[in-house]
């Protein structure tokens, strides 16, 4: 009764051939299309490099002031503004300014790409249950597959560098953006939508005038999650050549530099908290009309 105890497996040889066939296929694909794909991403690379140079060329007081200004506009909270200023000052004081600027620039580009792709995909997903049924498992895979696994094809295709790093960060960070856009639009009050219909709104007028504005708090939660996840992924992406705070962390791991690892890690935490508070309080302020005082 061998078939009960021995699991039926593909033969060792067959399995090897199977794996090699996939690898060969992907390598061929890379050889024939790798260059084209790389040049396709060139504009993204130029934008990333330009942004990084811009941030590095900006005098530090100007940068800190700009961050404080942004924090104030978004949150109207003194403690967030002061916290941001102090954190950035400490980061610079402890010699991590340049790495931090690289990280900030890649996070910004990632966030822009994630919003640019995630918003339309989320909208498409909200419009039909069938699209949702197709996209949801893809998002599940993107969120659960170990990030190292998809680094492999990305590196095979594009080599080591900023763009493959950026792509892997986007793959990791985009699902919440898509999911929450979809959710937000689906949660919009049916009665309000019916009213829009009754006044003769077209699909586009409903989307722009009703669905997106009412989904905005959820969409913003998605942006917030996307930023948080790209910060988490930046360290892993540094393995394939993304500069920034991730690289010293990687060096610290291989050389057992406790302090170095800790400081850079904490700088990432500080960035995360600042981005989180700013984007969250902005999301909350968007909803201020919901809690307006009831004066009868």
């Amino acid at each position: 009764m061998n078939w009960l105890t021995d699991f039926p497996t593909l033969g060792r040889e067959d399995l090897r051939d199977f794996r090699m066939a996939i690898d060969r296929g992907f390598k061929d694909f890379t050889r024939s299309y790798g260059d084209n794909i790389e040049s396709f991403f060139d504009p993204l690379l130029y934008f990333l490099i330009w942004l990084e140079k811009l941030l590095l060329a900006t005098p530090w007081p100007v940068f800190i002031l700009a961050v404080c200004g942004l924090a104030w506009i978004a949150s109207r909270s003194k403690s967030i503004v002061i916290g941001s200023a102090v954190s950035f000052f400490l980061i610079g004081f402890l010699g991590m300014w340049e790495d931090t600027m690289s990280t900030v620039s890649i996070i910004m580009v990632c966030t822009i790409v994630c919003i640019g792709l995630g918003l339309p995909i989320g909208i498409l997903m909200s419009r039909s249950d069938r699209t949702q049924a197709v996209i949801t498992p893809v998002l599940d895979v993107m969120q659960t597959i170990p990030s190292f696994v998809y680094l492999i094809p990305v590196v095979m295709l594009l080599g080591i560098g900023k763009v493959p790093g950026l792509i892997s960060v986007v793959i990791y960070a985009i699902p919440p953006m898509i999911r929450l856009t979809n959710l937000g639009i689906r949660l919009v009050d049916r009665e309000v939508l019916e009213a829009a219909d009754a006044f003769g709104a077209s699909a586009w007028q409903k989307l722009i005038g009703v669905q997106i504005p009412l989904a905005l708090p959820n969409i913003f939660a998605g942006v917030n999650q996307t930023i948080m996840m790209s910060l988490a992924m930046v360290v892993i992406a540094s393995m394939i050549g993304v500069t920034g705070l991730g690289q010293p962390v990687l060096r610290a791991i291989s050389n057992q530099y406790l302090a170095m690892g800790l400081l850079n890690g904490l700088a990432l935490v500080a960035l995360a908290i600042i981005f989180d508070r700013i984007s969250q309080s902005y999301g909350k302020r968007l909803q201020s009309h919901r809690t307006g005082g009831h004066d009868e």
Binding site: V192, A198, S202, P213, L214
Partner: peptide, 20 residues
């Protein structure tokens, strides 16, 4: 759409105003 825009408008039980 034109009929709904120009010839018949509607008032709803639960108001259905745009909260934003």
């Amino acid at each position: 759409r034109n009929f709904r825009r120009h010839r018949a408008s509607m008032v709803f039980q639960k108001f259905a105003l745009l909260p934003h």
